[in-house]
Design a protein around this nucleic acid. Structure first.
Lengths: 202, 202
DNA sequence: ATAGCTAGTAAGTGATTACTAACTTACCCA
DNA sequence: TGGGTAAGTTAGTAATCACTTACTAGCTAT
């Protein structure tokens, strides 16, 4: 695992770099992560980073690619084989929460990237990530409506916005309390309220 | 209004500074707002800022004080005289949304401040702001439960978390679309889903 | 009117930043 | 086994940052 070999092939070094950034974002403000801090965290000199990335922007792009890939794969896997759209949404929610609890830096990076004024490559990556996320949600919600599991008069877009906001609210609470674990504990209770808001039964 | 008088009394100059920061945060990443940018935006030299604030941290503290004061006053005023707890919550929600639409930089500053690692004065101010916000919500939700307007088995903390998350979700959507106006348009539809999640009737 | 003070300017300072360039080390294959 | 290359180190660079200092302009009270 943590082979103490210095010289790593370029692709491995890039992967390690991405993980270092994700790691650092878990404990400090993403916008304050310097290339020196990244290098130090992976026992490398700062200059060596620029053998593998043309500039810092490219590092952020790679990081957001990593996030988009892993998060979408995770929620897809969690919902796979679940027939009930509502149950699939719950599985997506919980696996998303689990992902965030494992990588607390992720929601910070996403939000931080979104509020950039300039359309950086990393920002565009985040935008397509959330767009794809939204597509999956919309599909499930529509299925649930025709299925009868979800309220037939439900506003699909509003429900999708609220789904993501629900997670965002959990993240804020964990930031407030300075306690990442809290997000795992609160997630089922908050999702229960959300489910009631979109469900048909009662 | 925009008196072109240079020399301003200290307290007025501080107020103008705070407004400049709130303004700038509406169009650029709060963590990238420099003292030079602040000064330029208010037609002042950068050095002059330090006549009125000991350091940049103090500027941020003043800004978050401004936000906390105005936001809490706004939601208090909106809910005042409304007997129904649920109606009061809706009024709070809409006035909060209105506040955010007027000052799009506010949620960015709040989130940005929250994810600071060090407990800066500004961060503490945000924490007490959200704490007070939460108290008001908890009170209303409890009232609504005993009142019969809200589901009697509702998880109060979860409902409060989701209330804030609902707004956070709207903010994310507006950041994604790069369209602040969107938040006003979507707010009623998203709140309707939330209301269904906490309400008793159906 | 002018002295005293407040507010503003201009030009710095050192620290920190992303990025570079010259040199060195380790790996791999002919 | 030695030569070429990929990867790492060291010591820079210019730019930018928050903050300071020496000086100046303007308001106000005696």
């Amino acid at each position: 695992m943590d082979t103490h070999s210095k010289h790593l092939p370029a692709d491995e070094r890039r992967a390690v770099t991405v993980e270092a950034v994700v790691d650092l974002a878990g404990t400090q403000n993403p916008s304050e992560i310097t290339t020196a801090a990244i290098a130090k965290h992976m026992n490398l000199t700062q200059g060596a980073l620029f053998r593998h990335f043309p500039n810092k922007e490219a590092i952020w792009k790679a990081v957001m690619e990593w996030v988009a890939e892993r998060l979408l794969a995770r929620i897809d896997r969690s919902a796979k084989g679940i027939d009930s759209p509502l149950a699939a949404m719950e599985a997506m929610f919980m696996s998303h929460v689990e992902f965030v609890a494992e990588h607390p830096g992720v929601p910070r990076m996403i939000f931080g990237e979104l509020q950039r004024a300039e359309p950086t490559p990393a920002k565009r990556m985040v935008q397509t990530l959330i767009q794809r996320y939204g597509e999956r949600l919309n599909r499930l919600i529509e299925q649930g409506k025709s299925n009868g599991e979800l309220c037939s008069t439900l506003d699909t877009d509003a429900a999708a916005t609220l789904f993501i906001g629900t997670i965002q609210g959990l993240v804020m609470q964990s930031l407030l309390a300075g306690d990442v674990e809290r997000i795992r504990r609160d997630a089922p209770r908050v999702f229960a309220v959300y489910r009631r808001g979109i469900g048909s039964e009662q």
